[in-house]
Simulated assay, not measured.
Amino acid sequence: MLVLGCIALIAGCGCLGLWLAYRIRRRPIELRECSMALALLDTEIVWGATPLPEAFCILKERTDSPWQDFFAELQERLQQGESASTAWRETVITRNAQFCLKPEDWQVIGDVGKGLGRSDRTEQHKQIELVQRQLIIMKEQAEAWSSKQAKMWSYLGFLGGIAGVLILI
C-alpha cells in the first residue's frame, strides 16, 4: 500500500509539472495565433471594408480554439449592440482564463479594442499594426523563456514528487 501511495505522489506531482510545462509552451503559440488573427482582421478592415461583426465572423471561421471562441463572443456582443471597444474589453476579461497568456500579453491585446470602430480604417490599421509588432516581440521573448522554463517544470514536477516521497518515508 505504501508503494502505491509513493507512486501516486510521484505521478501526481509529475503530471502537475507536465501540465505547467504545457501551459508555458502554449503561450508563444497563442501569441503567434493572435498576431495572425490580427493580420486577418486588418485585411478585412482595410482592404475588404468589412463591417466588424462580419469581420469577427470571418475570424471565427479561420482561427482555432481558443481564439475561435474569443471572436465568436466578440461577434455576438457586437450583434447585441455593444460598441466595438467595450465588446473587445469585456471579451478580454471574460475569455482570458481560457488562454495561457500573461497579464502583460492581455494589456497589449487589449490595446486593439481602443481604436476599433472609433476611427477610420487608416487609424485602425495603424493601431493593429502597432499591436502586431509588439506581439511579435513578446512571442520571441516567450519562445526563449518557454524553452528553458518548460523543461524545468517538467523535471521539477517529478523531482518534487520524489522529494515528497523521501520526506514522508
Rank of each mutant, 00 (worst) to 15 (best):
G161F: 07
C100A: 15
L135W: 06
F99A: 04
V46W: 14
W19A: 14
H125P: 00
G17Y: 07
K148V: 12
S147M: 11
C15K: 01
K151Y: 12
D105A: 13
A144S: 15
L18T: 09
Y155I: 11
D64P: 00
T122M: 13
L38A: 08
T94K: 10
L20D: 02
P51H: 12
C34E: 00
W153N: 01
G48I: 10
Q79W: 09
I10P: 00
Q127M: 12
M36K: 09
P51Q: 13
A163P: 00
L159S: 12
R25V: 10
M138N: 04
F71L: 03
V3I: 15
R26K: 11
T86S: 09
R77E: 12
V131G: 04
R26W: 03
V3K: 06
R89V: 03
I7P: 01
S146P: 00
K126E: 14
C15Q: 04
C15D: 00
C100Y: 07
T94S: 14
A8K: 05
A84M: 08
A21M: 06
R95L: 05
N96V: 09
K114M: 12
V92A: 08
G113A: 10
A39L: 14
D42R: 14
W145D: 13
A39Q: 11
L168K: 03
P103L: 02
E82C: 02
T43H: 08
R26F: 01
L78V: 12
E129Y: 10
L116W: 06
I7F: 11
R121F: 05
I24P: 00
L16N: 05
G17I: 08
R118G: 02
R23C: 06
Q134S: 07
L2F: 06
L78H: 10
L16Y: 13
S35D: 10
G113K: 07
Q68R: 13
M152S: 07
E123M: 10
I10F: 02
D120E: 08
T50F: 13
I137C: 02
I137H: 10
T86I: 09
K60S: 15
P53K: 01
L38H: 09
R77N: 07
K60T: 15
C13P: 00
S119F: 14
Q107C: 03
Q124V: 03
F99T: 07
E33V: 04
C13E: 03
I45T: 07
L78C: 11
P28M: 07
K139T: 11
T94M: 09
S154R: 13
G5L: 12
R62F: 13
L135T: 03
E90L: 12
L101D: 05
D120S: 06
L20P: 00
A163E: 02
L38W: 10
L101M: 12
L9H: 04
I137Y: 12
W153M: 11
L135A: 03
T122H: 12
A37F: 07
M138V: 02
Q75F: 05
T94G: 02
L4A: 08
I162S: 00
L135D: 02
R23V: 04
I109S: 00
D105G: 07
L9P: 01
I137G: 02
